[in-house]
Design a protein around this nucleic acid. Structure first.
Length: 306
DNA sequence: CGCGTTTGACCGGCGC
DNA sequence: GCGCCGGTCAAACGCG
């Protein structure tokens, strides 16, 4: 099923050399042996350079598309924020309800009033503590279904503090707190998708109030991830499983937005990188993109290819 | 012995 | 008011 998607997927040329090899193989009239390519070296490098240029141009175009997308996202995001802040004012005035609703808001916009315990009055602090404090984002990770460990490697250090079987899902939900910084309020829930057990759903609440630990720090400080149960995860297969990240709250840099006045361009760059990384790893996206813009860049690509 | 995980108990919110 | 359910706590346990 998925292989079908992959086959029809837009070739984004993530790995141009592989691609080049394929074309070369095709050009070498079905020679079986890979090693003895009969094309003269000069001609070969010429083809490669040409291919590389073409790929660069395509990447540039895709990059522009992504940037454009980001700009649109930002303007929409801002509009939505305005709308919601108006709504929440009304909401606060009329009803002091309710967790679920609050969570909906946070879910949709990533509205985090203030970090930490900076709420002003006690009353609004207790409930909204949960309502407004936490930024919530979800990460979907494809893993081996036979792999029972619920470990999501995201560069932070987590301490498990609970596990629970929930009603709507036979697989247990694990609760983690960020243990890299003692005061870090971030929590993470990890649970297998009810529909597709091969997909891990990690839900993050809150923001890290510390920078992302470096790999050295991670392997150094405490054994949380070097623990026997966690260790297998560091196997590249799992951590590099194809991941689609839906960061509902904050487009980028969600680790440390204590430094709010980050240049928007920087954020944009990070966002572009993140999106590109996520999207290009997702065969569904590439396929959808291919379908959507099949008249444009891709056609040009295909024409050249044929 | 220290640290992290496991797991049953407990608590609070919510619906009926 | 009661019961269900999700989230958290904390003692017990295991590992290095």
């Amino acid at each position: 099923m998925e292989s079908a998607w992959v086959d029809t997927a837009l070739d984004l040329n993530i790995n141009p050399f592989y691609h080049s090899n394929k074309t070369l193989k095709g050009e070498s009239k079905g020679e079986v042996a890979d090693s003895d390519v009969k094309v003269p070296v000069k001609q070969e490098t010429g083809v490669l350079v040409e291919e590389l240029n073409r790929v660069n141009a395509e990447n540039k175009k895709l990059n522009e598309m992504l940037t454009d997308l980001c700009e649109k996202y930002y303007s929409l995001h801002n509009q939505f924020m305005e709308l919601v802040s108006k709504n929440s004012e009304n909401e606060a005035a009329t009803s002091k309800k309710r967790k679920a609703e609050c969570e909906d808001y946070t879910n949709m916009i990533g509205f985090s009033g203030n970090d930490e315990s900076s709420c002003i009055d006690e009353e609004s602090c207790k409930r909204p503590k949960e309502c407004f404090k936490a930024k919530i984002s979800s990460v979907y990770l494809r893993t081996d279904p036979s792999d029972n460990s619920m470990i999501v490697r995201d560069g932070y250090q987590w301490r498990k503090y609970g596990q629970k079987v929930t009603r709507d899902n036979p697989s247990p939900r694990a609760y983690f707190k960020c243990s890299f910084a003692p005061s870090c309020p971030v929590k993470r829930k990890v649970q297998r998708s009810a529909e597709d057990p091969s997909i891990l759903v990690a839900t993050y609440e809150g923001e890290h109030n510390h920078p992302q630990p470096s790999p050295a720090e991670l392997s150094f400080s405490s054994n949380s991830n070097a623990n026997p149960r966690s260790a297998p995860v560091s196997a590249p297969t799992k951590s590099s499983a194809s991941a689609v990240t839906l960061e509902l709250m904050q487009p980028a840099g969600m680790g440390d937005d204590t430094k709010k006045p980050v240049q928007q361009t920087t954020i944009q760059q990070i966002l572009v990188q993140k999106m590109a990384a996520s999207l290009t790893r997702d065969p569904n996206f590439t396929a959808a993109l291919a379908a959507a813009i099949s008249g444009g860049v891709v056609d040009q690509h295909r024409i050249q290819k044929w």
